[in-house]
């Protein structure tokens, strides 16, 4: 029972740090995936009085594709409405229309600057950015990301202090043993062996718990539907890769705490 309590005292703060980080990482991934979807759907319309090439535009913006819109669909529409026109004359009279796709999905701020820059392209008369199509969901996700970043910072700081405290408790618990080992010339890593072992075990247990919780959440129906809405494809290999990163981070944090506490106590 005492041993379980001992382990939980380190597992809980570690779990909090890992949960906060994993939440942030997944949210970031969702936002990126959502940005990609938006970017694929999003186009800027250019109206020009002469033919323009990709090179003309790419020097002004981060261009993915420039596609000329066939004026045929306008003419077809006019013909469908039985409007009597001279089609050949109209073809020469009509301006050139282009669809511009960008490499990344721009923020509202960027969009204004992009519009200004595109207007500077030789031949461009009008630029339509459809700025209202910037979705509310996207803004919400960005806000959520910022909030989670702040929470992650707070949780990580408090949890790290708790880890240091727990290491101190363990150090005091094993002080006598470590002192005896020191008397016989044991190096720091050997004296702190018991703390290092506890740190490694609890890091692995914490990461496994975080993996389990996120695996369950991301596979649950509610979240599946939600992330399906924004076309976020959940791949469990992401979680596995993240777990490896979290184990590394956890070992760094806990081993740093062990060394920090041991050296500080020895000096005292």
């Amino acid at each position: 029972m005492k041993s379980l309590k001992n382990h939980l005292s380190l597992i809980i703060p570690l779990f909090s740090i890992f949960f906060a980080i994993e939440f942030y990482v997944i949210l970031d991934r969702v936002i990126k995936s959502y940005e990609n979807n938006l970017r694929d759907d999003y186009t800027i319309l250019l109206v020009a009085n002469k033919d323009i090439k990709s090179e003309d535009v790419s020097s002004y913006v981060d261009l993915s594709t420039l596609e000329k819109i066939d004026p045929k669909f306008i003419i077809d529409r006019l013909q469908k409405d039985n409007i009597s026109i001279d089609i050949e004359a109209l073809k020469t009279f009509l301006p050139k229309f282009y669809k511009v796709k960008l490499e990344h999905f721009p923020s509202s701020k960027e969009l204004k600057s992009i519009k200004e820059r595109l207007k500077r392209v030789d031949g461009v008369e009008r630029v339509e950015t459809f700025s209202k199509s910037h979705t509310k969901i996207y803004t919400l996700l960005i806000v959520l990301k910022q909030i989670s970043k702040i929470f992650m910072g707070i949780i990580a700081t408090i949890s790290f202090l708790l880890i240091l405290k727990q290491m101190q408790v363990w150090y005091l618990e094993h002080k006598e043993r470590m002192y005896i080992m020191e008397l016989f010339g044991a190096p720091l890593w050997m004296r702190s062996g018991v703390l290092i072992r506890l740190a490694i075990i609890d890091t692995i247990l914490s990461v496994a718990s975080v993996y389990g919780v996120f695996y369950y959440l991301l596979n649950s129906n509610i979240l599946q539907n939600l992330i399906g809405e924004i076309n976020f494809g959940f791949d469990s290999s992401y979680l596995l890769n993240d777990s490896v990163f979290l184990v590394g981070l956890g070992l760094f944090l806990t081993l740093f705490s062990v060394i920090f506490v041991s050296i500080r106590q020895v000096k005292e």
């Binding site: 020191e182 008397l183 016989f184 010339g185 190096p187």
Partner: peptide, 11 residues
């Protein structure tokens, strides 16, 4: 550096 010395002592 004390650990070096203590390896040669029996206490």
């Amino acid at each position: 550096k004390l650990s070096f010395l203590r390896k040669y002592l029996g206490i």
